[in-house]
Amino acid sequence: MSHPAKGKSALLIKLTLWLITFTVVLPFLWLLKASVMDFANSQAGVLAWVRDSVVFTLAALIFSVLSSITAGFVMAILYIPFRKTMIVLTLITMLIPATAMAMPLYVLVDHIHLNDTILGLVIASSYYPFGAFLSYLYFSSAMPGDLVGMGRIDGLGDWGLFYHLGIPLSKSLWSIVTFFSFINLWNSYQLPKVLLNAPEHSTLPMGLELLYGRGTATVGILMLIPAVLLYLLSQRSIERGIFSGAVTG
């Protein structure tokens, strides 16, 4: 925020924002209250759902964040054959309905004998085109060609450009891609429902459905806590401006 409004308009803006905030927070206060009352009703199985959710989310998160950000950097800055095709394919695959992909993914995962396993779910969830596209947008606008050219003159190779220029200039991008990838995986419902059929494997969103009406608020709070903590940890870098890089103010 660079040129703050002053006087009456600033007061009006503040009041509007506080009113919206107050309206939004009310349902969550109810959820918190309900979770305390519901705690006794939640079942022992919840811990197993938490464990499976954590393992699945962390494994898929690491791969999806690393692969999508490096891919965004390559598509924006470096040269690869069929670069434009890759960008368009990224956009198209991002828009494919999950239902269309669920059945073929089920067949593929079954083909490599990983059906009903967390590893199969991790592999099927490791593609994150949203992150790659966001990274492509970021590096396209935040890294000027001159800077990259100077890096080349200084003898940097592709990895060197990414390590010495790309990573230092994209801390907020890493935060935001990690945050959204986490939310996407942690709340994932449709794919786990198709790929995990064994009763011993369930993620929290699937458990929420199983527990509906009996301790659901506790599961709801359990699902909310890690996302809030991750946001608080990465908030400063997210708010620095996700698209601010080497040239913007």
């Binding site: 891919a71 890759m86 992909m101 099927a124 969830s125 085109p129």
Partner: peptide
């Protein structure tokens, strides 16, 4: 650098 993403795109996007 692009290979891991491309592999994921193939397995989870294009082949399905």
């Amino acid at each position: 650098m692009f290979a891991p993403y491309f592999a994921a795109m193939l397995f989870c996007g294009l082949i399905p």
